[in-house]
Design a protein around this nucleic acid. Structure first.
Length: 280
DNA sequence: AAACAAACCTGTGCGC
DNA sequence: TGCGCACAGGTTTGTT
């Protein structure tokens, strides 16, 4: 569910509402949420500390603690961080509770793919190997069009699965990959090795604009489960989606094609067959 | 290297 | 109303 704009919205919530507040108690319900280490490791690592800052790389929240350790949170498909008043009713699937004086930070996650871990920042490459190998973050690293072109063109994969590869670009998920490729007028199965410089420029422009617009809108909240920010509020960027979830609708860009849905790299993929015509 | 399937879980929406 | 099935925003692992 949450991709870069949604994770960034949560990061801003942590920065504004949780950084600097002492964690005076930790409860871990579901052990699976802390499977990388253990229930006791999370409790011992967080109790008595506070977040010094709230960082993000790709879809990973990385928060330095005043103990010198760091807290990593990944929401995966259905994870949510919610700030509530102490003593509030716990939503179904609340797996971790951080007590912050008169408030509580809840980690709620129905599918339990998400995780939390306290790590040693000096050993990220061992404790969080996938974070150490993350690719360029469109906002944190702010790559220029030529850097982007360089990392994309040296692969022969199709562009859609490549955009989803977190080791290449970090933070793009299934919704924004489709929206970015539509804005750049590229068919999702275009081989990356065939990209021209002007394609990279188009992807670069679309990526920056779409991700920033979405952050401004508080992210995308789809009708079903629904991503929400720390205060439980949904975003509104789904209203600006041009292709994702619009199968069969007339293309709002060219007005001639009808949005098609295919499977690419095992993921549902939406595009306009007219303005994203495959190249030969 | 790249494509594909399956796995991890739970919930929802749809056709019948 | 109920049942079964397809499908879901992420990522890893194993197999061709």
């Amino acid at each position: 569910m949450p991709e870069l704009p949604e994770v960034e919205t949560v990061r801003r919530g942590l920065q504004r509402l949780v950084v600097g507040r002492r964690i005076d108690g930790v409860e871990v319900g579901r052990e699976r949420t802390v499977r990388r280490t253990s229930r006791q490791a999370l409790i011992d690592g967080l109790t008595g500390t506070s977040l010094v800052a709230a960082g993000r790389r790709g879809k990973y929240l990385l928060c330095p603690l005043d103990s010198g350790d760091g807290l990593m949170v990944h929401l995966r498909m259905t994870g949510q961080l919610l700030l509530v008043e102490s003593g509030s009713a716990r939503p179904l699937h609340t797996h971790v509770v951080l007590h912050l004086g008169d408030a509580e930070l809840l980690f709620v996650d129905s599918r339990t793919f998400g995780e939390m871990v306290v790590y040693d920042p000096d050993h990220v490459d061992i404790e969080l190997p996938e974070v150490a190998r993350l690719g360029l973050d469109p906002l944190v690293d702010n790559p220029d069009p030529d850097q982007l072109w360089a990392v994309l063109r040296r692969r022969s994969m199709r562009i859609k699965p490549l955009l989803l590869d977190q080791h290449v670009i970090a933070g793009i998920g299934n919704i924004y990959a489709d929206e970015i490729l539509h804005a750049a007028r590229l068919h999702p199965e275009t081989p990356a090795s065939s990209l021209r410089r002007r394609d990279a420029v188009a992807i670069h422009e679309a990526m920056g604009r779409i991700l920033n617009d979405s952050i401004r809108a508080g992210g995308s909240t789809l009708s079903d489960v629904g991503y929400v920010d720390m205060m439980g509020e949904g975003g509104s960027y789904q209203d600006a989606h041009l292709v994702y979830g619009r199968t069969g609708e007339r293309c709002p860009t060219c007005g001639r094609g009808f949005i098609r849905r295919i499977t690419s790299g095992g993921r549902s993929t939406h595009f306009c067959p007219v303005c994203q015509r495959p190249r030969t």
